[in-house]
């Protein structure tokens, strides 16, 4: 009954003509081929400058199998994720369009999913969305007509059964979208986090991108439970990583970001990275921090690759897209293999 990502769906379960892939996306084919997947992330600008997207895309091109496009991340208005995704499609970098439940009701979501598919977008990441009180329109009304788990199921029903939420048929079949969802192994209650993942899998998620992993021991514990439940065979889990930019950022993420656990050891390493560098030499400090941030990130990826059940990494280097290539290279994941057709 669970959607099997890798095995071809039995004929009885496939109303549409049997097809090997759900979406045919590069990401899906990479995962199907058993490669350790690498995804990146692009934050669209707070204006309509398409060149910003193109420049960032160029930095990721060849380094990642697909790039997430955030959807008004941290509840700040930005260029639309679907429009950005279309720009990426035009440039030959595969997008993973993020969509939050915060800004759209089920009408807008289904309409935008059709629109995304029409523009050549093949991956969608279903998110709850940060609360608007954290963003630049704290007085906005949030929607949350459906939640992220209901959204995953909605996309699956559209794709696999060709049905709108109301039960009406989508003429010509549903949009071919690989369904992603997020998981935060570090939020509380910990016991419930694996169950929540299981719900997302049961709802139809094909891949999972996790919150930034800094606390390796907690993540190992999480993955152990995931493997014990056999969830890793039903969904491709990509661990979130990201390079720290400075000791201040490490401290901020440790102390201030909800749902984030950053062990003191990393903060100490970032602080030690600038020891002996003159405080006035801002450029040298910046470089020292960034080099250490990239080093830590590479080590993390190497540690993560040893964890059973993990199928890839999702590298988040927002506003520092230049870091992606050295990280992917340093982790021995470059060049990216070409997926089978």
């Amino acid at each position: 009954m669970m959607d099997q990502l890798l095995a071809p769906a039995p004929a009885a379960q496939a109303p549409a003509p049997a097809r090997r892939f759900k979406s045919g996306s590069n990401l899906e084919r990479m995962l199907a081929a058993g490669h350790f997947a690498v995804t990146g992330e692009i934050g669209p600008p707070k204006n309509h400058d398409a060149d910003v997207i193109r420049r960032k895309a160029a930095l990721l091109q060849g380094c990642v199998d697909a790039a997430n496009i955030t959807d008004n991340q941290t509840a700040v208005v930005r260029l639309s994720s679907i429009a950005s995704g279309a720009i990426l499609v035009g440039q030959g970098l595969e997008p993973v369009v993020q969509m939050t439940c915060r800004d759209r009701n089920r009408l807008a979501m289904q309409s935008d999913l059709l629109g995304a598919a029409a523009l050549g977008i093949r991956n969608v990441l279903c998110l709850t969305g940060d609360h608007q009180s954290h963003g630049n329109h704290p007085g906005a009304k949030n929607v949350h007509d459906i939640d992220s788990i209901q959204m995953v199921r909605m996309v699956k029903e559209m794709r696999d059964e060709g049905l709108f939420q109301c039960g009406e048929e989508i003429s010509g079949g549903g949009p071919p979208l690989l369904i992603g969802a997020a998981a935060n192994p570090f939020a509380d209650p910990f016991e419930l986090r694996v169950h929540r993942l299981a719900k997302k899998v049961a709802a139809g998620a094909n891949f999972i991108q996790t919150q930034l992993v800094f606390d390796m021991s907690r993540f190992r514990e999480y993955m152990k439970r995931v493997v014990d439940l056999g969830l890793h065979e039903k969904v491709a889990i990509l661990a979130g990583v990201g390079p720290l930019k400075s000791a201040g950022m490490a401290r901020h993420m440790r102390d201030k970001v909800p749902g984030m656990v950053v062990p003191d050891g990393y903060v100490a390493r970032m602080e030690a990275a600038v020891e002996g560098v003159a405080a006035e030499d801002k450029t040298a400090r910046r470089e020292a921090w960034r080099a250490e941030g990239i080093r830590i990130c590479i080590e993390q990826i190497q540690e993560l690759r040893e964890i059973e059940g993990l199928r890839g990494v999702h590298i988040m280097a927002i506003e520092w897209e230049e870091a992606i290539r050295p990280i992917v290279e340093g982790a021995g994941l470059f060049p990216r293999p070409a997926p089978e057709a």
């Binding site: 439940c101 609360h131 009180s133 954290h134 949030n142 939640d147 209901q150 509380d188 929540r196 749902g259």
Partner: peptide, 27 residues
């Protein structure tokens, strides 16, 4: 704060809501 029916969201930490650290996470 998000009227989730299948919560909690990823912002729940230490039993508190991401919107306000004085508000317990309903889920």
């Amino acid at each position: 704060a998000k009227q989730l029916m299948n919560g909690p969201c990823g912002g729940s930490q230490g039993g508190m809501c991401e919107v306000d650290s004085d508000t317990p996470c309903a889920w």
